[in-house]
Every structure is written in C-alpha cells, then in structure tokens.
Design a binder for these strands. Structure first.
Lengths: 397, 397
DNA sequence: GGCCTCAATTTGATCGTTCAAATTGATACC
DNA sequence: GGTATCAATTTGAACGATCAAATTGAGGCC
C-alpha cells in the first residue's frame, strides 16, 4: 500500500505561467504583471482582455518566483508549542489561529515549526531566516529575563513578541495589560461586597503573575482593603492540583476569604475542586475569578479575564509591517483605542467576563449552584482609565 | 510608535548566495551545489574546501530559488481550526504539533491557514496549490459524507486525510481504529466486573462515534451482556453540558449503569458533574472512561482512550511522500506494527490509559475519591488482535 | 605520439516574476 | 515638417538554484 497512488496527477502538466497568459491575451509578460501590480499603467481595454485570459487559465502568480525576485517570501514564522499535560489553559492555539487570520489580511502566509528547546528554536529561526523561507518571526510567551529577543536582534531577523522582557532590550512587542486586568477583577469583587480577597498566582519570576496581583492590590489599597487581605497571597506552578492545594490553605484558615482570584483558569479549576470538597458552592459561598477565559472557564461557568488575543495578533502583524514588503492590501486595524503607549511596544486592555462564579453580591447571594446556573454573562472593559485623548495618541487606522 | 523601527537591518545586505561560496572556495557554482546534492561527484579535497567556505559565510541554499527550479516548495499545508467554546477536547493542537515535527523530518515546512467555512477552505487549497506555495495538503477531521476529499481530487492537489469518508472515494487516509478502542474499553470494564455499561456518544452521523460504540457492543455481546446494557445508549453534541444532561438520564433510572463510557473527554467531564451532584464518587460508585486522553482527562484523573496522534502524523507524511520531491532525508518510521490494512488507508490502534476513574473492580471498591487519588496509571494497547503476520503486511520502515 | 576513457569540474540554459530601460505610436506645439 | 511630450507597451536582465551538456585533465593503451 501507499505505492505511488494518487497525488501527482498534474505534475509536469505545470500550472499556467504569466507567459501563457500573455500569449492568450496577445500582450507581453510585463503587461500581465502590470494588471496585477500597476493597473493604472494598462489601458482599460487591454486590462479587460488580460483579465479574461487570467480567468480562463486560472492563473495565479507563482509564489516562489515572486519571492526570488522580491527577495521576500511573504511568510511569517512562529514556533508551535507542545501542549502541557497539566494545564487546561490554551491561549496558544487561539493565538495561532488569530495570527493566521492576521497575516492573511496582509497577503502573507504563516509557517509553524516545532522546536525541542530554546537553542533549537533559535537555530531554527536562523535557518529559516538565512534560507529566505521566512521574512519575520513572532515569538510567543516572552517574559522578563527571556534571552530570546536579544538573540534574535543578534541574528538580524525581523521579529515581534507577544510579551515583553523589560526595558533593557528594545524590540517590537505587544502585550496584554495584566495590571489593568487585575484591577478590573478587584473592582468587580469589591463592588460585589467582598472585603477579604485571596490570590493564587504563578511562582515568583513570572512578571505576568506579578502584574496581575499588582493591579489587584492597587484597587484594594484604594479601598483600604489591603490589610484585610494580607497573607491571602499564595503561589504555585500553573496546574490544577496546585490550585486545589493552595486553595485548601486559604479555605481552611479561621478567617477564609469570601473571594479568590486565580492567575489562570487552570488554577481556578483547582480552587473550585477544593471548595467543593469542603461543601462550598462556587458563586454562592465563594466567589471565584480566573484569567484567560479559555473554554474551560465557559464550561465551568467561571468568571475570567479575557485576553484580547485577536487584537494582539493584529497588532503584532501591524508592528512587523514596516519591515515587510510593501503591503498591497489595505493596512488592517489593530485595536480600537489605546492609552498612552511605550516606545516599541503596545499594551492592550483585557476584558472581564463575569459569569456565575462571581456574579452574586455578598449580601443577596445566588441560590443555585454555579454549574447549573444560567449562561447569561456580562462583559466590561477594563479600560475605564482611557482618557479622551487616547484616540489621538493611538495608532492611526 | 511603530514607525520603521528595527527589523530591516540587513535588507539589501543580502544573504550569501551559492555564487559567493563558489568565489570564496575558488570553484564554480555547480561544484558547490554538488557538495550538497551529489557529494560523490566532488573530490574530497575540493569538498573540504567548499565546506569551509560554506561554514565561513553561513551559507544556506535559498528556498525560493530551489522551489522555482524544482517546481516544488517543500511545504505542506493544513487548515487551523478555531477553538470551540464548549469543548475541552483539543486533539487538533496536539496533531498540529505532531505534524510540524513529522514534516520537519523530511525537510519540509508546515504552512497553516485559517478558513471561515468549507468553501473558503477549498478555495484556499486551490489558491495555495496554484501559486505553488504548497505541494500537498493534510485534511483534518474527515468523517463519512465529507465532501472535501472529492473536491480535492477534482482540484488535483495532492493530499491525505486524518479520518475517512467511506469506500466511495479513494484517496490517501490515515485513521484511528475507534472500534478497537471501544473494544478495549469494554474489555477493561468487563474485566473489572461491570455488567451494565452506559454509553454517551456523538449524534447519529458521526461514524467516529458509531465505531466506538460498535467496538464496545461487540465485546459486550461476546460476554452476553448486550441485553443488560440495552437502552443505556444516549447521544448528544460534544459539550460538557450535554454529557451532564445525558448522564442524568442514565443515573436517574431505577437500574443505573455501574460504568459509563463517553465518546470524548468533554462528555466525560459532564458525566462526572452529573454524578457528583447525585453524591456519587467517580471511580468508587461509578466507573467512567472517556476518549482522546486530552489534558482534561489527566487533570480529572479520568481513564481515556489515547489517540496515537504522533503516529498518525508520521503516517500521513509517509503517505504523501511518493508525491513529494525525492526525500533526501531517510524515510521516517510510521508506526511499529499493524493489522492487515485497507488500500489507500492506514488504521492505527489507540491505547487505553487507565486512571482512577475506572481502575477499581465492582467488588473491592476504591475508598478515596477520584480527584485525590494517586496518579499511577497503567496503559494497555488495544492491539491484542494483531496477528503475527502483521509486520510483513505493514509498511516497511 | 595519438587516441580513448573516465573522473572532476565548468558553462549555458531554465524555472516565473518584476525592475529598469527601451520602444512604439499618438498628439501637440513651434 | 520636425520634434518634444507622454501614455502604453515591450524587451532585456536579474533574483539563486540545479539540470543537462560541454570542457578539462590525468591515466592507460596501442
């Protein structure tokens, strides 16, 4: 089996080339080319004739020939991560899909590759760059202290990152404003009457986790609740089991919090497990909010801070644009509005999606359980801080 | 911000070409080419000199030039699906990663694209094929009655599918032997002492779902248990809520099953929810087995039938190989062993991963709950049927 | 020496496209 | 009439690699 088989029907029959179209339309190659790339140079009558020939032959310009001539492949590269066994958080696949759409909008293709480790990853970037297979790269999941951006600058390969390293390396980056997300959660919970709010986050060193709790604390401080929530801040790897373990610590205290914020939906699911084994009903006895708004959050009716992944993908493509071959397609919009932005970077505000797990107030509590409660959910942007001047400062288009 | 910025450092500085290497080594272009493609034609002394020049200049053959000359891009294309809000089952991302690795093994690249609907998808295949951007395609999630394979044959674009349509269209396909998976689950449960086994599957029309239940029933029949499990077979869309709803029907019967098999981990999670609200402990009061062995299954300690996704990806690449440019890399192994295989296709056996949700027997029942139980899990291949003649009939290598 | 053989290497042509420069043809202006 | 102007179109060259054919040089043989 699998001997030759189908698949090479028209190998050798070759696709129509620009020369074939030229002959069919009775013009030269260049005129056909102009119909695509500089229509104003072609007389209307001629253009119609050429377009008819293009249609008839089903002609499409050969990508390899264009790439060779233009010294640009119109391909964006990104590493595809392997799924993590213990995490339910899948922002990566949503980002890949969003990025595929974003690069298509500027007539580019998306090339994905697997890498075993950061060294293999950098090696692959280098190879893809030197072979001309890829024009620019997108690096996912960059956090403080990551060595890859500096290595990329050394390679000389154009790139942009989702996430930022800090202030030392200046490269193009786009990131979610996690601080604003944390603040939105705090505002939401405080408005619902919670005063003792627990936090279960990523280990020290994750600046994403730190920013989330910083935003949270900022609002609590503003309401004079920082003291009441003192000592309710625990950390662990992003796994369900850790969420459960750490939540147990919080819930078994003599003065347990009435609300818990988890740095991810994965951790939040663990919190829900721990609460359940203690007979607590999420949404009634304990408010719970996660981050990322993965399918998991929807399924378990958990409130969650939704990342603007699609906007991130568009902004990254937009950031790369100046280094790419002249975009013939219209420049796509990136994000609606924006607060003042740092150089080289772009911060996008996430959105809190409120579901049954945190919808009730501490006074009049919800009567039904979280899992059977209705699906009605409200959303609220975290960008209350956006000044009226924001639109004039943001990216045009 | 985002004005020019970094990213075009060496635009115009141009990478080293084969001519540069030739000059540096004091030979002609063709000799450099031969060092790569026909080393036996080059004198050892010359080869060493050329290799030194290659190393010094960091030369890598230009992909676009090779593609133009060879009329083959060495790129495989696949559609990236958007994540489904209500499903926790993510086989797709695992497959993408596996496919990326598999195509890299034969020195190809993986191009992913997003499509709005099947028409858009086919249109994109056509465009990618006609522009020469992609040599061959992989179609994911093909099931009985799917029109896409027939359309692809009409396009004349080489392709292989994960999943099969039936017997009418002959194209290259690779699929998981779901019947064997269902049978393995049944054997496992029967061996644990279960006699009334419920099934919650996909709606009619999903041949994947049908095959799973067919395998299940086959074993039950063999043990004379088909009558006892009659009427315990329910169907619904692949969502957690449906799993819970359908499980409620089974569990609220006067004679509830002692074990439930769900056609996916997503449905299984729903079953677990329904059981919990009724005070039943999964693994003690009710055995539960899902399909796909997604991270979800691991997190909730659910037994699940693991798909051999990595092997599927390798087999698909292997199936496409004859239609691709001569593979210079050694042909990668596809799968270890195989039962007699149908023409054009390849069936791979899944593996049952037994976890706490179904490890106990109906006699001596586990004492702790499923979620806190240890993580020790055993695996058993479903390929007990493999004859000794299998290796001689399977794909070599 | 002349000639054949064979290995090692070079030259020319080509893949399909597009830039730059050259050509054509029509109109206008002195 | 001669010629400058301009739009429309064509021709030549180049991007970087590799196939096919030609060339070079060394060795063997009569």
């Amino acid at each position: 089996m699998f001997e030759q088989g189908s698949g090479d029907e028209n190998r050798g029959a070759s696709m129509a080339s620009i020369a074939d179209v030229a002959v069919a339309a009775g013009v030269s190659r260049q005129t056909v080319s102009n119909v695509f790339n500089a229509p104003h140079r072609v007389r209307k009558e001629t253009r119609v004739r050429v377009e008819a020939a293009i249609e008839a032959l089903g002609y499409q310009p050969n990508r390899a020939a264009q790439a060779l001539r233009a010294q640009a492949s119109r391909v964006i590269g990104i590493r595809i991560e392997s799924i993590q066994a213990d995490s339910l958080t899948t922002v990566h696949d949503r980002f890949l899909h969003a990025l595929a759409e974003a690069v298509q909008a500027i007539d580019h293709h998306l090339l994905v590759f697997a890498a075993d480790d950061p060294d293999d990853e950098i090696g692959t970037y280098s190879r893809l760059h030197r072979t001309g297979a890829v024009d620019a790269f997108v690096l996912y999941g960059i956090d403080e202290g990551d060595a890859r951006p500096a290595q990329m600058l050394r390679l000389g390969a154009p790139f942009a990152t989702f996430g930022r390293t800090g202030h030392d390396v200046d490269h193009l980056w786009v990131d979610v404003d996690d601080e604003s997300g944390g603040a939105a959660v705090a505002q939401h919970l405080v408005a619902r009457g919670h005063r003792r709010i627990g936090y279960i986050g990523f280990p020290e060193g994750s600046s994403v986790g730190e920013r989330r709790v910083t935003g949270l604390r900022g609002v609590l401080d503003k309401h004079g609740l920082l003291g009441e929530s003192a000592g309710l801040d625990l950390r662990g790897q992003d796994e369900v089991a850790n969420g459960a373990r750490l939540a147990a610590v919080l819930l078994d205290r003599p003065d347990p919090p009435t609300a818990v914020v988890a740095a991810s939906d994965t951790l939040a699911v663990g919190v829900a497990q721990a609460a359940r084994t203690r007979g607590l009903v999420i949404g009634r006895d304990l408010a719970l909010v996660g981050f990322d708004d993965t399918p998991t959050a929807g399924v378990f009716d958990l409130s969650s801070v939704r990342q603007p992944i699609e906007a991130v993908a568009r902004c990254i493509v937009r950031a790369l644009l100046p280094g790419l071959p002249a975009g013939r397609s219209q420049v796509p919009a990136c994000a609606e509005q924006s607060t003042p932005q740092p150089p080289h970077g772009r911060l996008l505000a996430p959105t809190l999606v409120v579901r049954a797990s945190s919808a009730a107030t501490t006074q009049g509590r919800a009567s039904s359980t979280a899992t059977t409660q209705g699906r009605a959910s409200s959303t609220a942007t975290t960008q209350g801080r956006a000044s009226s001047a924001a639109t004039t400062q943001g990216i045009k288009g």
